[in-house]
Amino acid sequence: MSTYTDTMRETARRLLQECKVELVIGFRRGSRPMMNEPCLVRKPEDADQLVWDSNCGINLANYLTNRKEKIGIFAKGCDSRNIVTHILENKVQRDQLTVIGVPCLGMIDKRKIAAATEGEILEVTENGDTITVKTAAGEKQFAKAEVMQQNCSVCTHRNPVIHDEMIADPVPEQTDVDPYADVAAIDAMDLEERWAYFDDLLDPCIRCYACRNACPLCYCPTCFVDESKPQWVGKGQDAMDVRTFHFLRAYHCAGRCTDCGACERACPVGINMRLLTKKLNKDCKELYDWEAGLSLDKRPALDSYQANDPENFIK
């Protein structure tokens, strides 16, 4: 995927020179390995900052909210689905955007690499499917599939759903994966086990709200956790408050989440809070046959009524 970089720079430069867009949203190299950061390019000569490799997991749709300029944006499969959601929710207009599609083969999980190596990571390079990690202790090689983000390894929408241009030819979609295996595992537990499981899962949470901030869906001017009159949820690390926060955060993403993994990626303590949003995604799929962000013409499951909507939970 790192071969995309040159084409991207060219595309960004051309769009800016032709004044088709006022800014291009992409990635530049971060200050540390595996930490590419989003960047906004406004001048054609700055386009050379742009890079692309397997560390571009941040969801760029997050940077579109309420912008008024004409924007060029690089979009992986999940980014493009979030862009669709943004357009449906009137957070940005379709004619403002030039979506530059980037077929994606998955992003690497920096935690998996950090866990499998010793010492400070000095450099991470990739060549096709091989990731080479240079640490203070030495060099180690990984197959990309081993260190991929979990959501990428079960992704079934790798190619952008909307695009005005494409950086490369579409990649084959994965068809033989079961995206909801982990949700099914929890469904199989009884109530006690589930309660205990989530106690363990959420225990390390420090309430930094990085998951909320990284999420392109979380754009409310005042988030429910910041409201104080009434205060829906306490601000401390009380186990019930943490649980309420994660419950409501997930629930606000119901029918909108694209499982881009930005929340889990941003979490400083590595909580897999995607389990909750995935459960909702699974329910949406089963109850309403709905997957978020696939089409500009369909209203989301939870904001439309259909006569055949399930109602067996109502007595």
Binding site: F224, W232, M240, T244, L248
Partner: peptide
């Protein structure tokens, strides 16, 4: 709103 239900349980 789901907040109400949770607030009641809490």
């Amino acid at each position: 709103s789901p907040k109400f239900a949770l607030a009641a349980l809490r």
